[in-house]
Amino acid sequence: MQNNYTTKGKHLTIHDRRYIERWNKEGKSNREIARLLGRAPQTINNEIKRGQVLQQVRKGLFKYVYSADVAQANYEKNRKRSVKKLILTKEMKDKILHYHHENYSPEMMVKAKNIEAGVTTIYYWIHNGHLGLTRKDMLYPRRRKTIGKQASPNFKPAGKSIEERPEEINLRLENGNYEIDTVVLSKAKNKCLLVMTDRRSRHQIIRLIPDKTAQSVNQALKQILKEHQILSITADNGGEFNQLSAVFPEEHIYYAHPYSSWERGTNENHNRLIRRWLPKGTKETTPKEVAFIENWINNYPKKCLDYKSPKEFLSGG
Rank of each mutant, 00 (worst) to 15 (best):
C192G: 09
G132D: 15
R79S: 08
R143M: 13
S152Y: 10
E102K: 14
E168H: 15
K156G: 10
E167V: 11
S186G: 06
K136W: 12
T120M: 06
L97H: 01
N175P: 02
G51W: 00
H98Q: 11
K59W: 12
I147V: 10
V119N: 05
V83W: 03
N103C: 08
R144Q: 11
Q150I: 14
H127R: 13
P166H: 02
R135W: 04
Y66M: 09
V119M: 05
Y64F: 13
C192T: 12
P157V: 10
L131G: 03
I126K: 05
A117W: 07
Y124S: 08
R172S: 14
Y99K: 08
D69I: 09
G148M: 09
R143Q: 15
N114C: 12
G176A: 04
K189E: 10
Q52F: 02
M92L: 12
R50W: 07
S186N: 14
K95P: 00
K95V: 01
V65K: 08
E116V: 15
K95H: 05
K95G: 01
A151S: 03
G176L: 07
V53D: 06
T89Q: 12
W125R: 15
G159M: 03
E107C: 03
Q150H: 14
I122A: 11
K90R: 03
K63E: 14
Q150S: 15
N128V: 02
N78V: 06
L185D: 11
L61P: 00
I87C: 05
R135A: 03
L88I: 01
N175C: 13
T89I: 13
T182W: 08
K145M: 14
A117K: 13
G118Y: 00
R165D: 11
E168P: 07
E107L: 03
P157F: 01
V53Y: 05
V184H: 04
L171Y: 11
E179G: 04
P141I: 04
K160S: 08
N154Y: 13
L139K: 02
V65I: 10
E174N: 11
D181W: 03
I122G: 10
F155P: 09
